[in-house]
Amino acid sequence: MTVRVRGLVKAYGSLRAVDGLDLDAAAGAVTAVLGPNGAGKTSTVEICEGLRTADGGEVAVLGLRPGSRALRHRVGVMPQQPGGYPGARCAEMLRLVASYFADPLDPAALLDRLGLTEVARTSFRRLSGGQRQRLSLAMAVVGRPEVVFLDEPTAGLDVQARAETWQLVRDLRAEGACVLLTTHDMGEATELADHVVVVDHGRVRAAGTVAELTAGAGSVRFRSTPGLDTGRLAVAGARVSEPEPGRYVVTAATVSPALVADVTAWAAAQGAMPDDLQVGRDLEDVFLELTGRDLRA
């Protein structure tokens, strides 16, 4: 395994942010660590990057201790804070990082690909959050790394930048790199990940491919008028909930044509149109089942 984590523990005072976590990430694959805020994702990935030290457990990256000198030129890191010299220009910053490697990618081509050519001469301190993030991604991959750690690579990016980031991650995978990313975006995990590890309270709650995780019990989801009477759906074994106003999820042991008919009839009886009706279970359903529906601090 390219990245191997066993029994990882990280405590901040009395809080065990990571509490006996196991993780494997393979070469030529994208592994997504998915979890709510405060689940321990960033602590885990920062330990793998060598930015933090573990309080317990074992971590090996390419068989080496994280952060060791023999590893630095083989690993690319995009931390949650996209760091740069405040006074350095965008292109200058990327060329500097490229100069640490014997055979880096062409910085200008990389800037162009990530839509940063126009701000190439802008100082880091004047770049927008999204521009800093794209530069940070460029800095992570310019050394043609074998292992890439991306901590929430698309948080706060617009749709185009997100799509380009995803394509870049797919290209890294096609070239055989091991990509380990953290996200709380189900869409991103579904879109990109070969292997998803759902983390909560510092532990792994489930792991597998998206297909494996979403197999099993099903659901019917739709949008409609907020405040429908969820008590009135009388179908054996089925339950309606409204996780946010106007969004409904019906869960049942099996999803049959009859269930779908009953659900639409239930909405019709209240004069409501079930919009965007979807049958099946997605990663979000699994995630909410595993991590609960409470809002985290």
């Binding site: 930015l51 030129h73 405040p86 640490y100």
Partner: peptide
């Protein structure tokens, strides 16, 4: 001090810059 607060030192610490 500002380099540290901009996260550049931690960041470059993950690269071959020793």
């Amino acid at each position: 001090g500002f380099e540290r607060s901009y996260g550049v030192l931690a960041r470059l610490g993950t690269t071959p810059l020793t």
